[in-house]
Amino acid sequence: MWAFFHKLGSPRWFYGIAARLAPWCWGLALALIVVGSVWGLAFAPSDYQQGNSFRIIYVHVPAAFLAQSIFIALAASGFVFMVWKVKIADMAAAMMAPLGAAMTAIALLSGSVWGKPTWGTWWQWDARLTSMLILLFLYVGVMLIRRAFPRPLSGSKAASVLAMVGVINIPIIKYSVEWWNTLHQPASFTLTERPAMPTEMWLPLLIMVLGFYAFFAAFTLTRTRTEILRREGSKRWVKELFKEDA
């Protein structure tokens, strides 16, 4: 177990294994997203209250899921990096953060696009959207602090600490905002909390969510490989790698 863990932490080993895994993840992501979106957008029944505008959940929900999961992954990577000094965890975290921020932005945008026909306004201080907005701020903080230090290692550590602090706060923020929301506006109907969604509606949603996760895995593997080359460019094994190719 420990041997495996340390092996995984070696950039060289990870570089090789990621190269083998990545194509599978990309293929899976592509297949799931194509099936999910065609099914969700063309074949799933339309909502009796909202008509076709509800179909944006096939983007909104997976993006929101990823936005939250990626922040947790950031904190977990930060922990692994700080405690066991596994550099690969930090490289992955550096690559994941912008994707997480992008997913948060997509969730916010798709939420407000959905809000226009439903609520009649582009922005409503709905509990989920508000939490999502705060999450975006947290992502921005983690990304900014990483670049703020003259030494990359200090930036990595600072980003790790901030991600861990953020992840402890996320549930607190989430529940506070939900509580605040019920205080100020009695429950109106929201995009994601819907009573009894029929199977033909949620099955494509599930496929889309899985597709997004596969995309996240593929993206992280591929980007981390690039980051390994960037950071370890002066190491012998990297130089040998390219000598063989040439």
Partner: peptide, 16 residues
Amino acid sequence: LLSLLVLPLFMPVLIF
């Protein structure tokens, strides 16, 4: 930078 980092973390306190 300090403001950007910590203001989101203050929000629960503000709410309550």
